[in-house]
Each structure stands twice: as C-alpha cells, then as structure tokens.
Amino acid sequence: MFQNFDEIQKLGKENVDLAVKSVSAVTKGVQAIAVEMVDFSKKSFEQGSAAAEKMLGARSLDKAIEIQTDFVKSAYEGWISQATKLGTLYTDLAKEAYKPYENVLGKLTPKA
C-alpha cells in the first residue's frame, strides 16, 4: 500500500490541507450568513418600529388596518426574499466546503 514513510507523511499533509481549505470555506460562508441575518434583523426591527409609530398616529380604524396590512405584506415579502438569499448562501457554502474534496472523491469512485 505505502512504499515508505514519506508517502504516508505526504498523504497526511494533503488531507490536512484539504481539511483546512474546507474549514476556511465554511468559516467564510457562516460569516456571510451571519452578516446577512444581522442586516435582515436590523432592517426588520426598523420597519416594525416605523409601522408601530404609524399605528400610534392613525386617526381611524380603517387607516390602522391599512397600515397593518401594508406592514404585514412588506414583512412577508422581505422574509421570502431573505429565505431565498439564505438558501443561496447555504448552497454556496456547501459547494465551497465540498470543493477541496472533489478530486479525492473522484479518485475513489469506480470508473465505468
């Protein structure tokens, strides 16, 4: 299997390098997701606060319902948009984390 100790060392170093690349990709991906979530949370809080201020200033029930409806609609659309962004970020994270192992796993699969 291994002809000498140098081959074992080389294999071990290659595996460590692959793991470091993969962990680095995961770290970058998680940081991007965290930044996106913080931005979304801040934006959602600001929109909720603005809607609450408008509700307090509403002079009629119809106006209050209109404000609430607009807020719920924009919050829902924002949430759908955020979910799509996060899905893309998680997909990119998985691809980048897997990328260092593509060649290794390609060698392990049997050729037809």
Rank of each mutant, 00 (worst) to 15 (best):
N4M: 02
S41D: 10
Q31K: 13
K85E: 09
V38N: 06
V35W: 13
K28C: 07
G48D: 08
A34P: 12
E102W: 00
I33V: 15
L61D: 11
E7W: 02
K13Q: 09
D17G: 11
A34K: 11
M55E: 09
G12E: 07
F2C: 07
K54E: 08
I8E: 03
S44C: 06
A94S: 12
L93S: 07
E66W: 03
A51L: 10
L86S: 08
F71V: 15
E53Q: 15
K111Y: 00
M37D: 00
K111S: 00
R59W: 14
R59S: 14
A50L: 04
E77C: 14
K54M: 07
T69V: 01
E66K: 06
K63A: 11
A34R: 12
T84N: 15
K28I: 07
M1S: 05
E96I: 02
W79P: 06
A64L: 15
V38E: 06
V38H: 00
K43P: 13
E14D: 03
Q3M: 15
L11C: 11
K99F: 05
I33E: 11
K21H: 01
K21D: 04
E7V: 00
S22C: 03
K42N: 13
G12H: 08
E36K: 09
F45W: 01
F71M: 10
G78V: 05
F5G: 14
E53L: 10
